[in-house]
Amino acid sequence: MYICICNAVKESDIRDAVGAGVSCFKTLSKNLSLCTDCGSCGKKAKQAFHRALAESGASSNVVSIDAMSTAPVRRIQSTIKVSASATHHQKCIKTIL
């Protein structure tokens, strides 16, 4: 199924990117040129991305944010495992929020 008509991005392209190690929507968006033209694919692209992460089991190094959560952002960020890519994940969290 096409997610982005402007750039001919399919849901399978998103699954392939996640399978190749992409764990941040900002990175996915940049790599596949999602949300760069008309922007109407944003919601479906994010849903497909989160589905692909869940299916791949890659959620262990991805922070999930509950929209109904009242936890402060600094508390959510403190749950990120300290690694070389921790700064990258923090930037992704700020982008999502």
Rank of each mutant, 00 (worst) to 15 (best):
M1Y: 12
M1Q: 11
Y2E: 11
Y2C: 01
I3F: 04
I3D: 08
C4D: 10
C4Y: 08
C6L: 05
C6M: 08
C6R: 07
N7Q: 11
A8M: 04
V9W: 00
K10Y: 11
K10C: 06
K10N: 11
E11F: 00
S12P: 03
D13A: 04
I14K: 01
I14M: 03
I14S: 00
R15H: 12
R15D: 14
R15Y: 04
D16S: 12
D16P: 08
A17E: 05
G19A: 03
A20Q: 12
A20V: 03
G21P: 01
G21I: 05
G21V: 05
V22D: 08
V22S: 04
V22P: 07
V22M: 02
S23E: 08
C24M: 11
F25A: 13
F25D: 09
K26W: 00
L28A: 04
L28H: 01
S29C: 01
S29H: 00
N31A: 04
L32R: 09
L32S: 09
S33G: 09
S33H: 15
S33K: 12
L34E: 10
C35R: 14
C35A: 11
C38D: 14
C38Y: 09
S40V: 12
S40G: 12
C41L: 05
G42P: 00
G42M: 11
G42N: 09
K44V: 08
K44Q: 06
K44N: 13
A45G: 09
A45W: 05
K46N: 01
K46T: 00
K46V: 01
Q47A: 09
Q47I: 02
Q47S: 12
A48N: 00
A48V: 03
F49A: 02
F49E: 04
F49S: 02
H50T: 10
R51V: 00
L53M: 06
L53A: 03
L53E: 01
A54W: 03
A54Q: 12
G57N: 07
A58Q: 10
S59A: 05
S60R: 06
S60I: 04
S60G: 03
V62E: 02
V62D: 07
V63K: 02
V63Y: 07
V63C: 07
S64W: 09
I65H: 05
I65N: 04
I65M: 01
I65S: 01
A67L: 09
A67D: 08
M68H: 07
M68E: 14
S69H: 01
T70K: 10
T70P: 00
T70G: 14
A71T: 15
A71E: 13
A71N: 07
R74G: 03
R75G: 02
R75P: 02
Q77V: 07
Q77C: 06
Q77A: 11
S78W: 06
I80S: 07
I80V: 13
I80T: 03
I80G: 08
K81C: 11
V82F: 06
S83H: 04
S83E: 07
S83A: 15
S83K: 10
A84Q: 14
S85M: 13
S85Y: 01
A86N: 04
T87S: 13
T87Y: 07
T87K: 15
H88L: 08
H88F: 03
H89M: 13
Q90N: 13
K91W: 13
K91L: 10
K91T: 08
C92L: 00
I93P: 14
I93A: 10
I93L: 15
K94W: 08
T95N: 13
T95Y: 15
I96D: 10
I96M: 13
I96F: 10
